[in-house]
């Protein structure tokens, strides 16, 4: 996978040292305080589960960590980049180059084949079509769905489509993957297979994963969990994170 270096300027911390550091995050939507002072470190290569009741601030937290939302107070640093100091365009560039996303319903482009869906982020990063296709095929193969390469999402099962979404998230070799209920739309057996495939791939590449989940059995695949309640980390989570 060393054929294309997309992120040459990034200093990758050693495994076990913080890759993501959030300090004192506050974020409101109108009168609703979604985040109320969150401090969180996520280590390089770590798989962190973010749990908590609906409306507790989980999604707002990962959107702030990923630079999708800008917090009103506090700081987010990924590697050597202060995300909160970037403007909207710079944050978009950061997401394209260094961050992968996996959503509950894949959100693949319905008119593109699996291969083209996976190659797309590379093309957007300026990689040539031939190299992008070679690399996309490798990731489809790694996630055991080479046979789906020419199919469009509507012709695949939910589990297969989700593997394509994972291949698309990993193809740019991001520093971090943010996954929001990645197996939430799948039955137990399919969900477990998809999750195992994703985690094998990220552990091999030492990619950091922040995984939102309601499901304790999914969270059990993570290295640790934090619980968000009313926009804050629970006391037990702060203790674990310390």
């Amino acid at each position: 996978m060393a054929d294309i270096a997309l992120n040459p300027a990034t200093t990758v911390p050693a495994r076990g040292t913080p890759l993501i550091r959030a300090i004192g995050l506050h974020k409101s939507f109108g009168a609703t305080k979604a985040l109320r002072g969150i401090d969180l470190d996520v280590n390089q290569g770590e798989v962190l589960a973010v749990m908590g009741p609906s409306g507790s601030g989980k999604s707002t937290l990962i959107h702030c960590l990923a630079g999708v939302l800008a917090p009103e107070e506090g700081q987010v640093v990924i590697g050597d980049t202060d995300v909160t100091a970037l403007n909207a365009d710079e944050r978009a560039r950061l997401r394209l180059e260094r961050i992968g996303f996996v959503f509950q319903f894949g959100q693949l482009l319905p008119d593109l084949t699996a291969l083209d869906n996976v190659a797309l982020p590379l093309l957007m990063n300026g990689v040539g079509r031939r190299a992008a296709t070679v690399r996309a095929r490798k990731w489809l193969d790694r996630l055991d769905i080479s046979d789906q390469a020419t199919k469009v999402p509507g012709d695949m099962s939910g589990g297969q489509a989700q593997r394509v979404a994972i291949a698309r998230a990993l193809v740019t070799q991001p520093s971090v993957i943010f996954a929001d209920e990645p197996t939430g739309s799948l039955d137990s057996v399919a969900g477990e297979k998809v999750l195992t495939a994703m985690l094998e791939a990220v552990r091999e590449s030492n990619t950091t994963v922040v995984l939102i989940t309601h499901d304790a059995r999914t969270a059990a695949y993570a290295d640790r969990e934090v619980i968000v309640r009313d926009g804050m980390l629970s006391a037990a989570s702060r203790g674990v994170a310390a």
Partner: peptide, 19 residues
């Protein structure tokens, strides 16, 4: 709340072990 959070962490730790 804290008591339940601690128990939840204990349960998840056991689930990780079993997983």
């Amino acid at each position: 709340d804290e008591l339940l959070d601690m128990q939840r962490s204990e349960h998840l730790a056991r689930m990780r072990e079993l997983t």
